[in-house]
Amino acid sequence: MDISVVIPLLNEEESLPELTTWINKVMVENGFSYEILFVDDGSTDKSWAVIEELKTEYPAVKAIKFRRNYGKSAALNVAFAAAHGEVIITMDADLQDSPDEIPELYRRIREEKYDIVSGWKKKRYDPITKTIPTKLFNAATRKMSGIQLNDFNCGLKAYRKDVIKTIEVYGEMHRYIPVIAKWAGFHKIGEQVVEHRARKYGVTKFGFSRFINGFLDLLSIFFVGKFAKRPMHFFGSLGVLSFFLGMVAAIWLIAVKLYHISAHIPYKRDITDQPLFYIALVAIIVGSQLFLTGFVAELVSRNAPERNHYLIEKEMH
């Protein structure tokens, strides 16, 4: 199979027929063998009923329905496991991504040998309250990851099959799949300017909280990518530094006290009367705890067995 089109959705009943017809038209015109894999992320409207109707008309349609809303990352992770295409295209269900971009994305993966080609919505139809924070997050992600993409959060992306079968997407890490892929060893990441269309049906499903979550996810993915397999390098280094500074301060206080005693010089303040003593004590305790945390982290697998366990209500093949 040439292409798997992965489409997470939440309450998009109006757009699904038009989107499916459009994708089918593009695939037939270009002679691609394909599948459309919908993941219904706990919709409360008639999205699943619409998908069932589309299945009768388009055999390429496959679908997974979550019992409740888990989020876009969960939907992508399950879809990636189920996809069979040599190239996987992800896109949103709201018709803001154009299926006409698919042939060029596919060509760049197959002919130019990219691992990932990420869409760049250079001209956007979003309000300024969304575009400015997005620009800031993109700049921060470029700086921290070293990946020179202008639009990390664009839903329209193309992946080589090996990439999606290797990486794991959890939490709300879908924004940083290129970063996850890079840490997994896939370094050929390209970008393509794509059309951004104004929303035709419904309303956006993302609120202000996604910006806070985005920043926290960025810190998380940076830490996991850097130190997941060597947490002692992070916690141990901080622990040793804190312990060392605390010990130096404590030894200095003791040395000063002993010097005054041996030289018979009056020294009115006890060691425990000085704020530096308590700062040194806290630094030693914190340093020991961080060092022990590093040891524990080395023993704990970062892949919890239940982290990507989702309740699937229905599935179509």
Rank of each mutant, 00 (worst) to 15 (best):
S98L: 04
V203T: 13
K121H: 06
L292W: 04
K161N: 14
F208Q: 13
D97C: 14
K143C: 05
V87P: 03
S288L: 12
V39A: 09
S262C: 13
G236E: 09
Y106A: 12
C154K: 03
A255E: 08
P178C: 05
M232A: 09
K46G: 11
C154Y: 08
T129A: 14
K157G: 02
D115M: 01
R307V: 11
F38D: 06
D45V: 03
I279V: 15
E112F: 11
I36V: 15
A83E: 01
L290F: 13
L245Y: 08
S237K: 00
G31H: 12
N138D: 10
A283D: 05
V296L: 11
I312A: 04
V240T: 14
I147F: 10
D162K: 14
K62C: 06
Q274C: 02
R230L: 07
C154A: 13
V50W: 08
A74W: 06
G42W: 01
G225N: 06
K46C: 07
E18R: 13
P59T: 13
A250K: 12
P127M: 01
M27T: 12
E191Y: 02
F244S: 15
T90D: 06
R107W: 09
L218H: 02
R108T: 05
I180M: 07
V240R: 13
T20I: 14
I221H: 01
D100M: 10
H174I: 06
V300G: 03
I189R: 08
Q96M: 12
M232F: 14
A249D: 05
R110N: 11
G225M: 09
E168S: 13
T141D: 10
I102F: 05
I51E: 03
A280D: 07
Y176P: 07
S237E: 10
A283C: 11
N303A: 04
E298T: 04
P127G: 06
I23S: 02
I89P: 03
L299S: 05
G71E: 02
G31V: 05
F222E: 11
D41R: 02
S301D: 15
K121E: 14
P231V: 01
G185S: 06
F243N: 04
I180G: 01
G42K: 05
Y176A: 11
D115F: 05
S237C: 06
Q289P: 01
G185H: 11
E104T: 07
I3K: 06
D162C: 02
Y34D: 03
R197G: 04
I254G: 05
E306L: 10
I89A: 00
P305S: 00
D151W: 03
S98A: 13
Y278C: 00
R160G: 04
R307W: 01
I177W: 06
D217R: 05
I312H: 09
